[in-house]
Amino acid sequence: MALDRQPVLETERLRLRPLTEDDREALFEVASDPAVWEQHPIHDRWRREVFDAFFDEGLAAGGAFAVIRKSDERIVGSTRYGEVETDEEGDVVEIGWTFLAPYCWGKGLNPEMKQAMLEHAFKEVAIVEFRVGDTNYRSRNALEAIGADRTERYELGRYQGKRVVHLVYEITREDFEAGPLA
């Protein structure tokens, strides 16, 4: 059975549903705050044309979600499952491309969202990976808090002529079942 990369996931305070074109403006309202991207390697996603390319990529790739706060039905961010790949240890999926409005930071919404996504993913895959910019300490700390381990792997890229390093973190099904979100 293959992983359904666009289910509707419910938590106590959030609903994650497949991203649609109709979400563009509400999500841009969240993404247009430069604070969201200040530690991110693509630090200018608050700019309309950069955001639109990111949004279009998410729609085209599939697996992208609108994150909705149930208390007011407001879109407060987005996240995505990548394509499922198979390696020697089994099926692997990436969770990433995540951002939340600053007014949601520090309220436990990211771990709540990740718990639902991990529970769903581990029904079908053995490993979940995350890629995070090496200077994105907020995201790195958040990943470590949910039990993700930094691997020895990293990816190099370039953005606006500058080197970009993405560190690779992962959680195995077994580590998840014994970890802080279990």
Rank of each mutant, 00 (worst) to 15 (best):
E155P: 09
Y81Q: 04
D44W: 11
Y169F: 15
P180D: 04
M117Y: 03
E12K: 14
A142M: 00
Y103I: 10
G147L: 08
Q39M: 08
N141P: 07
F65T: 00
E152P: 03
A148F: 07
M113E: 02
D87G: 13
K107G: 05
I42C: 09
A26P: 01
V76N: 02
D52W: 01
E88A: 14
S32Q: 11
E85F: 10
G58P: 00
R140Q: 15
G133K: 08
A101P: 03
K162T: 11
L19P: 00
A61Y: 01
G82S: 05
L118I: 04
G90F: 06
N110S: 09
A148H: 01
E119D: 12
P34K: 03
F54Y: 15
T79K: 01
A116C: 04
P180G: 14
L109W: 04
L181M: 06
D175I: 01
L16Y: 02
L118T: 01
V67E: 02
F122G: 05
G179N: 06
L14Q: 07
F65W: 05
E85L: 13
M117K: 05
V164E: 03
R5C: 04
R13E: 05
E94S: 11
W97M: 13
Y137L: 15
G106Q: 08
R138F: 07
G90E: 07
